[in-house]
Write a protein that binds this DNA or RNA. Structure first.
Lengths: 202, 202
DNA sequence: AAAAATACGGAGTCATCACTCCGCTTGTCA
DNA sequence: TGACAAGCGGAGTGATGACTCCGTATTTTT
């Protein structure tokens, strides 16, 4: 126990991966993201392996469980969102930053189909699963989005009576709704939601 | 061919079901609705049978395919929604009728969990499946909701630049989002959406 | 009440998955 | 460059779930 060379938290394994292993891991992650996006999270692990051009064994070595694979993919997506939120956090135009981020997420989800379906609140059990790393990710997203929201509210661009919970629900719901919608309808749906968020309550 | 006694369209089979058969069919439908609502549409047919207190064989005799069972359940739900919409169609208060219906659907879905998840736009393939009877159902819902919307718009209670498509998307998304939300947050989410729908565009 | 028509239950079949195991290959390090 | 650790592929395993089949039970008809 005391002989552990580098007992790091996470995201940096004790011993670094062999070059090819790292490459494969990345390939699998990309493939998984695509496959799950296209076919839904019910797609088989074998299909992911095939798409990645590796054997099933390899997939399972890197991600010992289908759930863990899903988690990893979801984690990446969340990280991307968190990053996008963070970037806008310092914007001189809080209102623009907030709505822009909202639109970005909805736009992304509209493409990503199934994965985002899960992500955005289908709820079921994906909200339950959680790595510490995952929880961390979620926390970061919430944090950054919280800043965006607060700043937008301070400027009076967003009504004061909504909290992070409401915004995330709206984000999830709108993303969900935006799928399979042509661009123009999607635009109008966003308009409605945005107007609702801007409205000052009586 | 010409000897068919009553070659009716649907909803009334050529020869009427035996008493016990009709009873079982109904039991299965109820059980399916409950099970799918609780466990999601992935729940096994056997579980439905168990809940209904019949054998699997019976379930499959009445609904030769899991998909057809899902369809039947969905059809019932849609029919219920259509009925609710129709009822409000003649209301002297178009604005109230519209928003009330919206709220009703969202409230229902919040309870019905998974089934409504599919229903309300998870899209995937459930939008593709379709009985003629099913298509008919959908058409009726759209029709009645269309009336509610138009009347609400005529009174100026709903912005003129949204169509049925936008409203249905919003309905679906909001229902989706409303799941796993406590009542107070759900209320505020609805507030936002309603305000958005009321807003007159510039 | 007995025959005929229907429907019932549930064991059995077949396909699909997630996941394991192990002999072979490839990268790494001295 | 050779030895050894690390990684790889994919056949094999066990579980699960949709759907079938048929001997038995219940209705309906005569």
């Amino acid at each position: 126990m005391a002989t552990e060379p580098t007992p790091e938290k996470s995201a940096a394994p004790a011993r670094p991966l062999r070059a090819d292993a790292a490459r494969n891991r990345a390939k699998v992650l990309v493939a998984a993201r695509e496959v799950f996006a296209e076919r839904g999270t019910g797609a088989s692990t074998e299909e992911v392996a095939k798409r990645a051009g590796v054997g099933i064994g390899t997939v399972f070595r890197h991600f010992p469980t289908k759930e863990s694979l899903l988690e990893a993919v979801l984690g990446e997506i969340l990280a991307g969102f968190a990053e996008q939120a963070r970037v806008r956090t310092e914007s001189p135009d809080p209102a623009g930053a907030f709505f822009d981020f909202f639109q970005f997420v909805v736009g992304e989800s509209a493409t990503k189909n199934a994965v985002s379906a899960e992500l955005t609140g289908a709820g079921i059990d994906l909200h339950a699963i959680g790595d510490d790393a995952m929880q961390e990710m979620r926390k970061e997203l919430r944090g950054a989005l919280g800043v965006l929201l607060t700043r937008a509210q301070e400027v009076g661009a967003v009504r004061a009576d909504v909290g992070l919970g409401e915004v995330m629900a709206l984000l999830a719901g709108t993303s969900q709704a935006a799928q399979n919608l042509d661009v123009v309808v999607r635009g109008r749906v966003l308009d409605v939601v945005f107007d609702g968020l801007r409205a000052q309550h009586p």
